[in-house]
């Protein structure tokens, strides 16, 4: 990775709306980000923040209706996934972009052996013969650290533990050497010691294979350990983006700051009272015309109710490359206040 890494994935102004009986739900609102080869982008947010819907939209994995991708571009090596035919898209899913879903218990088909499920993308996308696919499947299971791979191929999902199943999911996602791996809360359902195993595995695979990874989670602790850059989502939009160390050392958005303060630590002084973010996440009916975080924000002022803040750089770098934040209080108002 000595040469300057090329951009593999470039998402611009993605907008996804769900049409429901109760009206339209604006789940993803003009989300933009990019991903370079070999890079790990962490996406943080709580349930309903739009992080999973964003990633599902990239590959058009959401059933439509009710989902409707209203706008934006998803450029994978320069080709727009949103403009592709279904056939073209099928050649991308699983081949160029691998997807690891949150729940290893429900994402594997219980009536097929693991071998069948790992070999499926190899036979469909790579056009391998059954015996070639089998050899590759064994290789993959060994890669993700499953002992006795050759025998394990003939077993069914219920014969594997949660951690093992998640490894299998990763093996399937890696089967065709994808350029991009999207992992949607891949360790959330797992115990901490098993989670630690998976995180080590991902770090190692990244070193070996150099693929770009998007890692979705609500756990800031996980992000701190593996990400290069972090994107914080709230109310279906990106509210803060920064390189990982910068984000944790110098969080700007009131939501990010509060989030970091609500979590107790296992080192350092013991917290006497947890900081609380009062209130509930917003319900996203209708387009955002004001800051989605305003109802829970301690720095709210008039402008927050009138205008939805755009992302603004606070370090002079172009949006999405350095540290940017979508908040009226942070930029430029606070800087001005500081100077005044």
């Amino acid at each position: 990775m000595a040469e300057p890494a090329a951009t593999v994935l470039d998402v611009r102004d993605l907008k996804t709306v769900f049409r429901t009986r109760g009206g339209e739900v604006h789940a993803v609102n003009d989300v933009s980000f990019h991903l370079k080869r070999g890079e790990l982008l962490g996406v943080v947010g709580e349930s309903g923040s739009g992080k999973s819907v964003t990633m599902m939209s990239l590959l058009r994995l959401l059933p439509s209706p009710p989902a409707d991708i209203r706008g934006g571009k998803v450029l994978l090596d320069g080709r727009d996934l949103l403009a592709m035919s279904d056939d073209e898209l099928r050649s991308v899913r699983g081949a160029k972009v691998g997807f690891v879903f949150q729940d290893p218990m429900t994402s594997l088909n219980p009536v097929f052996t693991l071998g069948d499920q790992i070999m499926e993308p190899l036979i469909k996308h790579m056009r391998l013969s059954r015996s070639q696919a089998q050899a590759r499947a064994i290789e993959l299971l060994e890669l993700v650290g499953i002992p006795g791979a050759a025998q394990r191929l003939h077993q069914y999902p219920h014969q594997f533990s949660g951690g093992m199943r998640q490894r299998v999911m990763i093996a399937i996602a890696l089967a065709c050497d994808p350029d991009v791996l999207i992992a949607d809360e891949p360790t959330t359902a797992l115990d901490v010691t098993i989670q630690a195993q998976i995180l080590e595995l991902v770090k190692e695979l990244r070193r070996k294979l150099g693929m770009a990874i998007i890692w979705i989670t609500h756990d800031l602790g996980v992000i701190a350990g593996i990400a290069d850059r972090v994107m914080v989502m709230y109310g279906g939009q990106v509210v803060e983006h920064a390189p990982v160390r910068e984000l944790f050392a110098n969080p700007q958005h009131p939501y990010t700051r509060a989030l970091l303060q609500t979590i107790p630590r296992i080192t350092g002084p013991r917290t006497t009272r947890l900081k609380v973010i009062e209130g509930q996440p917003p319900i996203l009916t209708g387009p955002l015309t004001a800051c989605p975080f305003r109802a829970r924000c301690e720095h709210r002022f008039d402008t927050c109710d009138a205008v939805n803040p755009p992302r603004r750089a606070i370090d002079g770098a172009p949006i999405g490359l350095g540290h940017d934040v979508a908040c009226h209080w942070v930029a430029p108002a606070r800087q001005e206040a500081a100077h005044a």
């Binding site: 602790g221 160390r245 630590r265």
Partner: peptide, 26 residues
Amino acid sequence: EALLSAVNEPDPELAARRNRIILKGD
């Protein structure tokens, strides 16, 4: 000891320095 070392602290500096004890198996 292993359980505590597996906890992810929201601190990138610490995460980079720390030696985790990775337990093998289930």
